[in-house]
Amino acid sequence: MSPKVAVILSGCGVYDGSEIHESSAVFVHLSRAGAQNVFFAPNIDQMHVVDHIKGQPTEEKRNVLTESARIARGNITDLKDLKVRDYDALIIPGGFGVAKNLSSWAVEGKDCTVLPAVEEIIKGFHAAKKPIGLCCISPVLAAKILPGCEVTVGCDTECEKWPHAGTANVIKQLGCEHVNKQVNEVHVDAKNKLVTTSAFMGNSPIHEIYDGIGEMVQSVLKLI
């Protein structure tokens, strides 16, 4: 039987939800590999709604599950119904929704809390020794939840190509190992069955980001 992968979304749009291109890349690469995927999202309000032209919060209220359904083409399930036993692997695309809706990383950094349902699911897959794939900012969830794990969010030295290198250093403060990787590469923490790639944490051409996510998906599937 083809592997069955749970994909957790956090809204729709880079500044307040899931990064759409990353989510789509996960969807396409899973499909190409012959894997089944099921989209999930928490049925909660977004932290806020951002005007993606102005880059500024608005007075709107939006629901994470409803917005995530835009990416999933309406085929999405409430996160509370995700049962670890029913899936072979877990993948969480990036986007600020990870740091705003799935956790409070955006405002509290290493002192953040993770949405209880998300924490329970990540710990559940980890305890069951089922692989977890994370890209862009979502590796911070593992760094917070799985002490001593190894992840990458790209490079730990800030430069024009890596403007978010500070995140790598915060991950180190949490007692985890950060491994520098290029955007088209992944890091595999074999002990924890954790696969991470940097995606939009760096300034790279979108086709390289797409390829890196493909490597992440393939590496996750190999660990099943």
Rank of each mutant, 00 (worst) to 15 (best):
S2A: 14
P3L: 14
P3D: 11
K4L: 04
K4V: 03
V5M: 05
L9A: 13
L9Y: 12
S10T: 15
G13L: 04
Y15L: 09
Y15C: 03
G17E: 09
I20T: 10
E22K: 05
A25H: 09
A25F: 10
A25G: 11
F27L: 11
F27S: 10
V28G: 07
H29E: 13
S31F: 14
N37P: 08
V38Q: 12
F39W: 10
F39L: 04
A41K: 00
A41S: 02
D45Y: 11
H48S: 08
D51W: 05
D51V: 04
K54S: 09
Q56F: 14
P57H: 11
P57T: 13
E59H: 12
E60Y: 15
K61H: 12
K61V: 12
L65V: 04
S68N: 00
A69E: 03
R70W: 01
I71W: 05
I71G: 02
R73W: 11
G74I: 04
G74T: 06
I76P: 02
D78P: 01
D78C: 02
L79A: 00
K80N: 09
R85E: 14
D86L: 00
L90H: 10
I92R: 12
G94A: 07
G95E: 05
F96V: 00
V98G: 00
A99V: 02
K100A: 07
L102K: 00
V107F: 07
V107P: 03
E108C: 04
G109D: 13
K110E: 07
V114K: 01
V114N: 01
P116A: 05
I121S: 08
I122S: 13
K123H: 14
G124V: 00
G124E: 03
H126R: 00
K130T: 01
K130E: 05
K130L: 03
I137F: 10
P139D: 13
V140E: 12
A143L: 15
P147H: 00
G148N: 03
C149S: 01
C149F: 03
C149R: 00
C155I: 14
D156T: 08
K161R: 14
W162Y: 08
W162D: 06
P163V: 03
T167Y: 06
L174I: 08
L174G: 08
L174P: 06
G175L: 02
C176T: 01
C176D: 06
Q182P: 05
Q182M: 14
E185R: 08
H187M: 15
H187G: 08
D189R: 07
A190C: 09
K191M: 13
N192Y: 12
K193E: 12
V195A: 09
V195Y: 14
T196L: 10
F200Y: 15
E208L: 07
E208D: 06
Y210L: 09
Y210E: 08
Y210G: 02
D211V: 13
G212A: 07
S219Y: 00
K222Y: 13
L223P: 11
I224G: 12
I224A: 11
